[in-house]
Amino acid sequence: MEMCKPILEVRDLYVNFYTYAGIVKAIDGVSFTVCEGETFCLVGETGCGKTVTSRAITRLVPEPGRIEKGEVIYYTPYGKINLLELPEEKLREIRGKEIAYIFQDPAAALDPLYTIGYQIAETMVEHKTVSKWKEAFIKAVEVLRSVLMPDPEKRVKAYPHELSGGMKQRSVIGIGLSNQPRIIIADEPTSYLDVTIQAQIMDLLRKLKKERKLTIILITHNMGLVAEMCDRVAVMYAGNIVELGTVEQVFKNPLHPYTKGLLRAVPNPLTKIEKLEAIPGTVPNLIYPPPGCRFHPRCSYTMDICKREKPRLVEVEPGHHVACWLYSR
């Protein structure tokens, strides 16, 4: 394994949502490091907190959420900064310029009232990548060409509703890439697309990563995609990272009972399994999360300590971390 040069480090992140029904403890002490140039995956079921984690990196947690504590260290070429303590205006200059997002639903992410070209140009002008709007519109064509948009000269003047789903997502990626960011955070970039288009979009992301030496943080619940795209993967359950390692480690040798269950519940791309099994039980209510390990009510190896104390993420082999009392003393 090559040396990891960190580009982003999330330390001990806590996020709560203050709803009328109570306080949802959505993210409960999440830590991980992303290395420069890698594709880092966050996997887990819907509602496990992967999207919130990814948004919290640049303080984009929506109302009524609040980041309670933690650090997000971003390693610039000139030194490191804690994004969670940065003034709003400085952070804005990083969003979309250094760290760009790709959202799940491209149809909703694009403003329906403006052309694709306008929205790309706007992103560049706002970050002073280009100074003049006219110039920005010309560059927008190049941006669209770089994301393999067919007929970019025409499409630059198109409104979102005039494009297909795949073309919309290409536009969103184009907006993300328009300022040459160092990190792309792609939140389920293909879940709203047809299967055939999904492959094209992932190919595009892979190609762009190679060309531009991008770091990608990919959020998905699709295990096939993880195996195909990622270098390292973090498995999340109910606001915690339960297992973290290289794709090989996690898929070939899953340690955490949840990871094991998850891999049995979907076709495992790296090993053959006989039949698919569901994980018994349901995702816990995070207003009143189970004490100790949040997975213990659904786990078949539950011990006494699991109900009392929360296990910490420990390294069991080089690069392979797991948060489970089965592996830590």
Partner: peptide
């Protein structure tokens, strides 16, 4: 103001005045 494109607007680092323009036009 709670729409996805405003959220995405924040994510791509638009200034508040610009976000408001998008929200108002919609």
């Amino acid at each position: 103001w709670n729409a996805d494109y405003i959220e995405f607007g924040k994510a791509r680092g638009l200034r508040k005045s610009r976000l408001m323009r998008h929200a108002l036009k919609n």
